[in-house]
Amino acid sequence: METGGLGKIYRDGEVIVRQGEAGDCMFVIQAGEVEVFREDGKQREVRLAVLREKDFFGEMALFDREVRSATVRALAEARVLTVDRKSFLRRVHEDPSLAFRVVEQMSHRIRELDAELTRLKTGN
């Protein structure tokens, strides 16, 4: 019996955040995997990414007050911990360098998006 796992356990297919809902926290995966997807207007799902241990998601909610841009659900069992906007911003106020890794991950995603966009535009 493991007693030391932090966060909350989500079962296979359980939704962690839903596209269009308001959010005030981000999530860090402690164990397992989650899939990120967007629903288009016709109820079709487009998978954007599969994320693993130590990855973040929902980080945009820390910086803007827009609704969630995608839905995230557990693939098999996943353990996920939340990081609250308020406590994150309070710490960043004292120590701006705390945002470094979030910015690093966001810049990594922008690179991926650039590559994807190029692929789409050039048809390769």
Partner: peptide, 23 residues
């Protein structure tokens, strides 16, 4: 504490289940 756990997660410092005896 809750706030330290959250900061460590953002720093990329894991809290492994063999160090944390109880969540």
């Amino acid at each position: 504490s809750e706030s330290l756990v959250q900061s460590l997660m953002v720093e990329g410092i894991e809290m492994p289940p063999n160090v944390v005896q109880r969540g």
